[in-house]
Amino acid sequence: MNLLTDPITVSHYMVVGAVLFVVGLVCMGTKRNALGVLMGIELVLNGANINFIAFGSKYLRAETLGLDGQLIALFVIVLAAAEAAVALAIALNFYNNHSTIDVDRADDLKG
């Protein structure tokens, strides 16, 4: 299958989404920096968004989600922005309290 000559499909988008998703997950799993974790979350959300857009696109499928895909993606974007604001505020607070943003040291409640 030639990627350059064949028309692309939803599956291709899904692969891109999967890459972003998994990279985001691994990012969340490996970054010790709280902001790195936050970036991982953004990547994850983005990967999900790609799927929504792909399934809602009428260029990729004859029978699509239609507008719903785009609308859900929009909500995800907006909520991601909200989440980023709060997460950032938490990170700043964490930094103020612990003088670090290393999530490995956020274990005050460890049992």
Binding site: T9, V10, S11, M14, V15, A18, K58, R61, A62
Partner: peptide, 16 residues
């Protein structure tokens, strides 16, 4: 995820 993406034939079929 990748396996899943190509499992449904409809998803892998371009819009005619």
């Amino acid at each position: 995820l990748v396996v899943n993406a190509f499992q449904v034939p409809d998803w892998s079929t371009p819009n005619p």
